[in-house]
Each structure stands twice: as structure tokens, then as C-alpha cells.
């Protein structure tokens, strides 16, 4: 690991100023991903600006039964919050399905969103990776890629985003509050993650020094039902090979509102907007759910060893929608 400086400001403006002043500074939250990447030589910051002393740890109900999650709230504290468990259970489900009790106690909300891919070639500095070193090439294309992307990938990068939490937040139309030197701004979580294209090293819509301060989750209709489901290669403590977050409201036997986000399928949480559009206003049935999932997956580009994800995610979408709408398969 390279040597680095350390600062622990207690004021947001000071933290932002410190980071703007050094192009190689990084914010340190829980550090469960960043410290690991520093050990691996993937990250080599000159300065860590520890933000855990900033007053951004609250999880609170806001006007109209909406939710505000401070960027420094720990994953455990969000998952066990009574308001989250009662009104946004898929957020608890997603968080509890991720990592371990030890890691959830430390990892922060903002850090969860900013965590990097676990692609084995990204974390191995002896291998070519366009995300780590633009122009170097992608070792995963012809390598070990059974858990890589089938949606939205490019010839430059096929890595997936590892967060469960972000997938549930995408289905909830969450927004991010970001502090820059100029002031606060807001953006949709789905705009925060950038498409891969030919610049896989540019992952999120943040300038250097901008700090996520909060995640804003709009209220879910009282009649809505929701769920986060995750498939992995062992029963616990593993990243998803496929996950689905669904929020659906049925009124008078018709789908009034449906939001579907897919995890482990793309470089970012994948909102299945084609499937959602196909289902809007329809009568819930296993057949219509399957047709909607197929429509979404027409865009899929499976690779040599990850084509299994196409039927896996289709079945998980259909099963989740059937469960939530009370339709039998």
C-alpha cells in the first residue's frame, strides 16, 4: 500500500474543500471496499478525507412518508430502522442480503453506492482492465466472465455493479443529494450511474470532490407491494449472480404502477423500463409477466459463459411479480 495523509474534518464544507484541493484525495467512509482496493494497489490515494465525523448519519422519515438516508448511515442501521422495515421493506431485504454482519456494521450508504466492481481482472493489477487503466483492454471478454454483464455492456467492459442496495433504490426512484464547492444539487440514482460506452473508467456523475450527502426515497403508495430477491452461488455472504427489486401496485385487477430493477446484469442497477411499459395497465398474469421479461431481455448480449443469466433473470422477474400480485404460475 502507498503512503497517504489522513484528515478527519467535522464540517462538510471543510471536507469538500480538502478533497477539491488534492486531485488524488479520496473520501473515506467505512472503507470496507476502499481500504481493500488500497491493499490491492488498485487505489493509491494521496490523502484520505475521513467523512465519518460529519453529521450525515441520520435515517429519518420526511414529509409525506418519504425517507431520507444520510450518506454516512451504516448499512446495518438502515436495515434495522423501524420506518424502513415498515414502509420500505425491500431496502432492508436488499441490505440484509449483502455482505456480512461485520461489514454491514461498518459500510456506509454513500460508500455502498460508490463501491467498485468485484470483477477479478479489475482487482488484479497484473491484468489488463479498461476500467482501471483506460485503453489497456478487457481480460474478462475472453476470460472468466460467468458473473459478468448481459445488459448494457460494451466491448470495452463487461463488469457488473455489485450493490444490492442500489438495485432496490433504483426500483424506488431514489434521488441523491450531492454537495459540491458551489452548493447542493440533486440527481436521480439512475442518472448517477453512467452508461459504459467507451469510457468504463467513468462510472458515476460526480466531479472530483463532490460528496454524496443523502439518499432521498419518495413515498411508496400504501397499496404497493415490494420485494428484493437475490440469487447467489451459496446461501449467504456472496454477491448476486442475479437479483430483482420490484415495486408493484394493482388497482381494480390492473397494474397501476410497476417498477422493476435488475441486479448483477449490468454495470449499474438496470431499470427494466421496457418491461414496465409493457405491463402498465395490464391484467396481472404469468403469461404477461413472461412476455414483458422477454421484451426486456431482447436487448441482452450474453457471452460464452453467462448466457444462463437470461432465463435466470426472466424466471426471477416472473416469479417475483406472481408472488406480489397473488397470481399463480
Amino acid at each position: 500500500m502507498r503512503e497517504f495523509g489522513y484528515a478527519r474534518p467535522t464540517d462538510i464544507a471543510e471536507a469538500v474543500a480538502l478533497t477539491y484541493a488534492d486531485a488524488h484525495a479520496r473520501y473515506l467512509g467505512g472503507g470496507t471496499n476502499l481500504v481493500d482496493l488500497m491493499k490491492l494497489g488498485v487505489e493509491t490515494p494521496s490523502l484520505l478525507v475521513d467523512v465519518t465525523g460529519l453529521p450525515l448519519g441520520q435515517v429519518e422519515e420526511t414529509a409525506g412518508s418519504s425517507l431520507r438516508i444520510g450518506a454516512l448511515a451504516r448499512n446495518s442501521d438502515i436495515a434495522v430502522d423501524p420506518f424502513v422495515r415498515g414502509r420500505f421493506p425491500l431496502l432492508s431485504e436488499a441490505l440484509l442480503s449483502g455482505a456480512s454482519g461485520q461489514l454491514r456494521n461498518v459500510a456506509t450508504a454513500g460508500g455502498n453506492l460508490l463501491q467498485r466492481t468485484r470483477c477479478a481482472y479489475f482487482t488484479d493489477v497484473s491484468k489488463p482492465c479498461n476500467k482501471r487503466e483506460p485503453g489497456a483492454g478487457c481480460a474478462a471478454l475472453d476470460g472468466e466472465h460467468h458473473n459478468h454483464a448481459i445488459l448494457g455492456a460494451s466491448e470495452h467492459c463487461i463488469a457488473t455493479h455489485p450493490s444490492d442496495f442500489a438495485v432496490a433504490l433504483a426500483a424506488l426512484d431514489a434521488r441523491l443529494e450531492v454537495q459540491s464547492e458551489e452548493g447542493l444539487r440533486e440527481m436521480a440514482l439512475t442518472d448517477f450511474y453512467l452508461p459504459v460506452g467507451d469510457s468504463p473508467h467513468e462510472e458515476v456523475a460526480l466531479e472530483h470532490g463532490e460528496l454524496i450527502t443523502a439518499i432521498l426515497v419518495p413515498a411508496v403508495p400504501a397499496a404497493a407491494r415490494s420485494r428484493y430477491r437475490k440469487v447467489r452461488e451459496r446461501a449467504s455472504y456472496a454477491f448476486a449472480i442475479c437479483s430483482v427489486a420490484v415495486v408493484v401496485t394493482v388497482v381494480d385487477d390492473a397494474i397501476h404502477d410497476v417498477r422493476i430493477a435488475l441486479g448483477a446484469m449490468a454495470s449499474r442497477p438496470w431499470r427494466a423500463r421496457r418491461a414496465e411499459a409493457a405491463l402498465a395497465g395490464s391484467t396481472p398474469s404469468a403469461g404477461s409477466f413472461a412476455a414483458a421479461a422477454e421484451l426486456e431481455l431482447e436487448q441482452a448480449s450474453p457471452l460464452r459463459d453467462n448466457a444462463y443469466k437470461v432465463p435466470l433473470v426472466r424466471e426471477l422477474v416472473v416469479d417475483s411479480l406472481c408472488e406480489l400480485t397473488g397470481v399463480s404460475r
Binding site: Y6, R8, L28, G31, T32, V35, D36, L48, D50, T52, S76, S100, G101, Q102, L103, N105, V106
Partner: peptide
């Protein structure tokens, strides 16, 4: 998890915590 300790009573992996940040 072999490095698990309690920090302020909560379990954590000591291998991923920087000591300086535990002041």
C-alpha cells in the same frame, strides 16, 4: 471473519479498519 472484534460493541472486520480512523 477471523479478525472480527467489537468496535463500540459492534462487530467489525479489524483487517479493513484503518487504525488511525478508530481514534
Amino acid at each position: 471473519g477471523a479478525c472480527t472484534v467489537l468496535v463500540e460493541g459492534r462487530r467489525a472486520n479489524a483487517c479493513l479498519l484503518l487504525a488511525v480512523a478508530q481514534q
